[in-house]
Design a protein around this nucleic acid. Sequence first.
RNA 1: GGUCCGGUAGCUCAACUGGAUAGAGCAUCAGCCUUCUAAGCUGACGGUUCGGGGUUCGAGUCCCUGCCGGAUCACCA
Length: 591
Amino acid sequence: MKLDSLLREELGNACQKLFGVKPEQLQIQPTNAEFEGSHTLVCFPLTRVSKKKPEETAQAIGEWLTSNSDTVVRVNVVKGFLNLVLNDKVWVQVLNSILKEDNYGITPPTGDEIMVEYSSPNTNKPLHLGHLRNNFLGWSVASLYEAIGYNVHKVQIINDRGIHICKSMAAWKLFGNGETPESSGLKGDKLVGKYYVEFDKAYKKEVNDLIESGVAKEQAEKDAPIMKLAVDMLRKWEQRDTETVDLWKMMNGWVYRGFDETYHQMGVTFDKLYYESETYLLGKEEVLKGLEQGVFFRKEDGSVWVDLTADGLDQKVLLRSDGTSVYMTQDIGTAILRFRDFPKISRQVYTVGNEQEYHFKVLFLILAKLGYQWAKECYHLSYGMVDLPSGKMKSREGTVVDADDLMAEMINEAEAQTRELGKIDEMDQAEAKALFEMIGLGALKFFLLKVDPKKRMMFNPNESIQLQGHTGPFIQYTHARIRSIMRKAAEVKKVNAIVATDLQPQEQRLIHMLTQFPSKLKEAATEYSPALIANYAYDLAKEYNQFYQAIPIFAEKDENKIALRIALSGKVGEVIKKSMMTLGIQVPERM
RNA sequence: GGUCCGGUAGCUCAACUGGAUAGAGCAUCAGCCUUCUAAGCUGACGGUUCGGGGUUCGAGUCCCUGCCGGAUCACCA
C-alpha cells in the first residue's frame, strides 16, 4: 500500500464531495516539526475550486476527513495549511507492507541500459582530490541507476595519446637513467608524473636560456630542445616507430598499474576501458566523412572546422592543418564507438568537470549535425571544482592533494580515533583493518558526495577529516548500533506481522521516512545527484538516533511494541545500508 | 568584453523545485553514560538568504538591475 497515493485519493474524494471537482494537483508536504501531524495539504491553490478563503477551505476538508475517513484521526489548520494526523493503524499497515518487501526500494532489472563515464584521467599525472570527487560521483550515479533497474555500463576513456605523454617520455629518456617503479620503489603513476614535472622544469630553463640569448619568446618555446624531442616522439609514435611505441607502452603500463592500485583503494571498477589511441582514428574518419557531406568545412591551410555560429557558439577546429586530430576529434570517435558497442543504451553520461561545459556543448552539437539520433541522449554530468583554503589546486604550486595520500591519511585518522575510543578490543586484526578503511573512506566519500555536484566545494584538509556530526561515520555508527540491536533481537521470538498498537512520534516519523526511500532513489538518479541520497541517509540516521535515545526497546513490556521496534530498526538499518551502497560506502556490523 | 555558473549563521553545507517562524554539522557554552554502542542525545547562542526594484495570497527560490567570486571563449587536454 502506498501511503502517498492513499492520501491523495482521500483528499481528492473530499474535494469532490465538498466542491464538486477533483483537483488535478494536490500539494502535499511534510508537516513542520512545530505542528502536530505528518502530512500537510497546502490549501491556497484550492481556493479557486472551493470559492472559500484558504483557512475555510482547509477547515472544510479537515472536517470532512475526520468524520468520513479512517486514515485521518485529527487535523489542525494553520493559515492555509491543513495538517493531518494519521491513524496509527495506517502507520502499522504501511510498515507491514514495507517489511514484506525483501529488497525494499530497489527496482528489479527493467532491461533499460545506460552508460556512465567517469575518471578518464591523463596518463601523465597521478590522481588527485578532484579525481576523487569525479570517481565517487560517477560510481554513485551508476549505482543509483542500478538501484532503479538499469543495466549500467561503467566506462572511462584513457587519454594515452598525445603530446603530454611524450613529454614524460622525453624527460625519462634524458634524465631517467633507466629508472623503473621497481628500481625506485615509486608507484608507476607517481614515477611518470615525476618525469612530467622534470620535463616542465627543463623546458622552462631551456626557454629562458634561449630568450636570454636573444631568441623571441614564441620561437624559444618551439625551439627548446626538450620540446623538440617530445614533438619528434609524437610524430614517431604516430608513424608506429618501434622504439617509441615500446617506450610508450612501457611507461603507460607503469601508469596503469599505479592507477589500478588507486582505483582498488577507492573501491571503483570499470566494465570497459576505451583508449584514445584506439578511437582517435575513427574520429578522424568521421570528421572527413562530415567534411564530404558538407557538415564541416576546410580552410586554406588545410585545417577542418565546424561552424557553430548559428547555434550561438564559435567556429571550432576538428583537424589541424597538418592533419592530426585534436581532443574533440577523438571524443567524436569515442562516442560513436560506444553506441556501436552498446546499441541498447538509452543514455550516455559523461562525468567531467564544469570547466569542460563548452566542450561538451560543442561535441553534442557536432554529433547531432553528423546525423546521430542519440546525440540528444548524451548528458554532461558537470560538477564543480574542489577548492582548497588556499584556493584552486595548482600542480605548479605544489598545492595538489594526492588521492593516494589523502585516502591513506583518512584511514590513519580513522584508526587513531577508533583506537582511542577503544572500539576494537573484541576484533581480530583483519576485522579492525577492514573497519579503519571503511570508516576512513566512508568519511571521505560522504564528504565529497553530500554536496550538490553542480556546486564547487571547499575541502579543508585540516577540518575535513572529521568523523562526528554530518559525516559518513555517523551513519555507519548508526548502522552498527542497529546491527547490535538485531543481534540481541535474535533471542526474542519472531512475529509474522506487526499488530496494530499506539505509536510514538519517533516511530511514526521513521516509518514516514522509510516510505520516501524509493522516490528518493529515483529522484537522486534522475537528477544525477548522490547528494540527495547522502542527505536522506543522514536524516534517517539522525532520526533513528533520536528514537534510539528516547525509546527503550527491550525494556518494553508489550511484546507487540518490542516486535514493532525491532522490525522497524531492522528496516531502517537495511535502508541505511542500501543508501550508503549507492554512494559506494560500506557499513560495518560493529564499530 | 561575450556566454554560463554561483553568493544562505563565524566556517562547511541543506531547504521536497513558489509555501508556514530559512534548517543541519563544525566551532562556542550548558546538561545526559549502573539502562539496547556517548563516533550518540538534549538545550543555548548564532540570519537584512550580496544590494535595489518587480511579479502574487506567499519569493532564498521566478523576472529586471547593480556588486562580488569562479569557469569558459586555443590548430591545449
